[in-house]
Design a binder for these strands. Structure first.
Length: 137
DNA sequence: GCCAACGTTGGC
DNA sequence: GCCAACGTTGGC
């Protein structure tokens, strides 16, 4: 089962809002990047993703689950891009910051570090397990 | 708030 | 089809 990492600026959509959305979850819309789109399309229901706060926090803060696979994003006038639905699973006991990720040699090749502008990224099993451990999950 | 990285757009 | 200009993202 694949794992993912999805980034959001807390000012536009925060973990708190994600939790408040509850079990019905929310649409992960607004993706306008082809690489991110490819990743969205590869997601399957039941797969989990890290929820990362960019800008202010710069930390992995929680885990979300895919509850609806890729479908067209009505807010995209061009019709090229789509979205998935996700819901909050659980927060990390201790958020794993970008600084900590960068300080860990095993995570040096993460897309989060290498492709900092990509908003939806794949995470390897080793990276997933390590960040879960660092986050106290 | 600045700037580097990167994607997209548009003129040629 | 190339490439300069521009806009956006996100770390610092």
């Amino acid at each position: 089962m694949a794992h993912w990492l999805m980034k959001s600026e807390p000012s536009s959509w925060s973990w708190t809002q994600m939790v408040e959305a509850g079990k019905k979850g929310t649409h992960w819309n607004g993706v306008r990047n082809h690489q991110a789109k490819q990743n969205l399309m590869a997601m399957k229901v039941g797969e989990q993703a890290f929820f990362y706060h960019s800008n202010e926090d710069r930390a992995v803060i929680g885990i979300v689950e895919i509850i609806k696979p890729y479908y067209p994003d009505p807010s995209d006038a061009t019709g090229k891009f789509g979205m998935v639905d996700v819901r909050a699973v659980k927060p990390l006991k201790k958020p794993v910051t970008l600084v900590e990720v960068k300080a860990e040699p095993k995570l040096a090749n993460m897309a989060l570090v290498k492709l900092s502008r990509l908003s939806v990224q794949p995470v390897t099993e080793a990276e997933w397990a390590l960040i879960c451990r660092m986050g106290g999950v």
